[in-house]
Simulated assay, not measured.
Amino acid sequence: MPRSEPGSTPSSATAPVSAGIGTRECLHCTVRHLAVCSALSCDEVQALEQITTSLPVPMGATLARTGEPRTHVFTVTEGALRLVRTLADGRRQVNGFVLPGDYVGLSGSDQHRYDIEAIAESRVCRVPAVQMRDLRQRYPHLERKLLQRACQELDAAHDNALALARLQPPERLADFLLRLAAREALQGQVGNRVALPMGRGDIADHLGLTMETVSRTFTKLRQQGLIALPHLNVVEILDFAGLQKLANDDLR
């Protein structure tokens, strides 16, 4: 069984751990098909489960800080995290958002390169980095899955860099919403509603815009009939083709 540790509400890398999850729960995890552990057979999952700790991460808590030793890797099973770096001039850069099924720990560095913060009530599966490395050597198909994930993250980083190079905020926001919609489709979400666990300020710091610009751009997309805003944290995409055209026009 995964280890269980006592703890209190985290404000740094140390966070409380609930009772461990069992192999049956691992096999029936709703995001297992998105996670790297999907590469493992039922029997092999038991080996992973032996070194895994289920860890609740309260909203606002910091799972790890920039520069701290990278002693663990994580898979998000609930909620959402953000990867944040503070620049030399004090500005905040949100490098990305970590959603259920995402793996945190694909890095050649021995230290964390970003602050990892919870932007919603979250839960992660935590595995010691050394033991994960041993497991990768034991199961080459897990290593291949991690390589595939690394390639996907590299592609996503290139796409995001291209989006940031665009001059018009509507193009950036349209691209961002479409990427979230594609992710929800992978999770099996049906319909045209996209959840936004991140706030407008996080979106602004991720897209290189001001919060006021992001708010105005949401309003503009709504006025154009591309989206509806039934709730602050929900976007309803009314015109996928129109949103895709907006996001891709500058690539032609």
Rank of each mutant, 00 (worst) to 15 (best):
A157S: 13
L178A: 06
N192I: 01
E121A: 02
A157R: 13
Q187F: 00
Q189D: 13
A174D: 05
Q93L: 14
L207Q: 00
V98N: 00
G79D: 07
D115Y: 06
Y114I: 02
P69V: 13
R149G: 01
P140T: 12
V127T: 10
V214D: 01
R82H: 13
S8F: 14
K245S: 06
E212H: 12
G101R: 11
L180T: 06
L226R: 00
F97W: 05
Q50G: 10
L180D: 02
I51E: 00
L48E: 05
S12L: 15
Q152D: 12
Q111V: 13
L164D: 03
H28I: 09
L243T: 00
D110K: 12
L147A: 14
I227K: 05
L63H: 11
G208Q: 08
A39F: 00
S38R: 03
S4C: 08
Q137A: 09
G108N: 11
A165L: 13
K220A: 15
N160V: 05
V57S: 04
I203Q: 08
P100D: 09
F74P: 04
S12F: 15
P69G: 12
G90V: 03
C29L: 08
I116Y: 06
R136T: 13
V235A: 06
V45Q: 07
V84E: 10
R200I: 14
A19R: 15
D202M: 03
R126I: 00
A163F: 01
Q152H: 10
D115M: 11
A181W: 12
F176A: 06
M1L: 04
G191F: 12
V235I: 15
G79H: 04
A161G: 09
V124Y: 03
C125N: 05
L246G: 01
K245P: 02
R123H: 15
L142D: 01
F74I: 09
D175V: 06
L232Q: 12
A120K: 04
V45H: 13
L178N: 11
Q224T: 01
N160A: 13
S54K: 15
V124A: 06
V36Y: 03
P69Q: 11
P197Q: 05
S4H: 14
E44Y: 04
E236I: 04
E153F: 09
D175W: 10
L146I: 13
R24I: 11
V73T: 09
R216D: 08
H141I: 11
D43C: 06
T53E: 11
L154H: 10
L180N: 10
